[in-house]
Simulated scan of single mutants.
Amino acid sequence: MSHSDYISLSWQDREIKLEYQWLNADADGPLLIFLHEGLGSISMWRDWPAQLCQTTQSRGLVFSRYAYGRSTPRPPAEQWLPDFMHQQAWEVLPKLLEALELKNEKPVLIGHSDGASIALLYASRYSHCMRGLVAIAPHLFVEEVSLSSIAVARENYVNTPLRERLARHHLDVDSAFWGWNDIWLHPEFKSWNIEAEVAQISCPILAVQGADDEYGTLEQIRTIQLLVPSTKLAILADCGHSPHRDQSAALTNHIQQFLSALSA
């Protein structure tokens, strides 16, 4: 894993520090920006982003969102609101791109799970600044299968070695876990829905999901295609919620074809 750098941003009347890394920085292909899942971080991606950048001869930017990885933790008393992904997409991500002097790039956003939802929300406002978008196991609305799996994660965090395993990837593992878990299981979050925003997207989309995703049904990516008919779908067999771990070769192949079509 490469060395991490840090950048400070002013957000919501405070300063936060985000951990980031460049991948394959000398490549001349498009810039790929990776947005991790709801319990993710730079290190939780493992080496898949670097492998994808090598395979596609692309540059990569991977970063840990606020409260994750080695980025600024969430204070224990801070409760996230149902629009927490909107805030990340419309407030923090534009600030990060500006601070890294990437405003004139036309990147491809590659998001997983909550990161895919954030990428979709960003594209709903900034499609004109993007080459394209890969949404891996995205959430557009809340399903019972998601809530039951997230409730199981809560039990496992309290009662199994899950907390110790996650602690290797986060400066403050409780900040990362409870921020995510508490808001997803909050009664107000059941009505969370970003279909209206997704309908505004005009850049090319590849939507990918495992056939055995334990956090969402295939209605999630099929809904993207209903709202944005040009969307390409990839449904991966023998694959759960993390295609970059369960079917990394197949995922890389689909993204490689998508990127080739963009440059053509």
Score class of each variant (00 low, 15 high):
C129P: 00
T160W: 04
L23F: 04
H186Q: 02
I235H: 08
Q21E: 14
F177M: 09
Q257P: 02
S58T: 13
E101C: 13
R46A: 05
L81T: 15
P30I: 10
H86P: 01
S2M: 10
N253S: 11
Y66V: 08
S41Y: 07
E91R: 07
K17T: 11
P76L: 11
A99R: 13
H3R: 02
F258K: 05
W192H: 07
H241D: 15
S230Q: 11
V62N: 08
G40V: 01
A234L: 14
S146G: 15
H3Q: 07
C129I: 01
P229Y: 03
A119Q: 06
L147Q: 12
K190P: 01
S2D: 05
R46S: 11
I150E: 06
N253I: 03
F34K: 00
V158R: 05
H128F: 06
C53I: 06
L233Y: 09
R74G: 13
P204H: 11
D5S: 03
Q220W: 10
A119T: 04
L18F: 01
A50V: 15
T56S: 10
E19F: 03
Q87Y: 12
Q247G: 13
H186W: 02
Y68W: 14
Q220C: 08
L109E: 01
V145T: 15
Q257F: 06
V92P: 00
A234I: 07
A264T: 11
S260M: 05
A167Y: 07
F34A: 05
L147P: 12
Y157L: 14
L185A: 09
N253L: 10
V173R: 05
L100F: 12
L227M: 03
H170Q: 06
A151S: 07
P243N: 02
E144W: 00
P107I: 08
E219A: 13
G38F: 08
W90G: 14
H112W: 09
L93S: 11
A250Y: 01
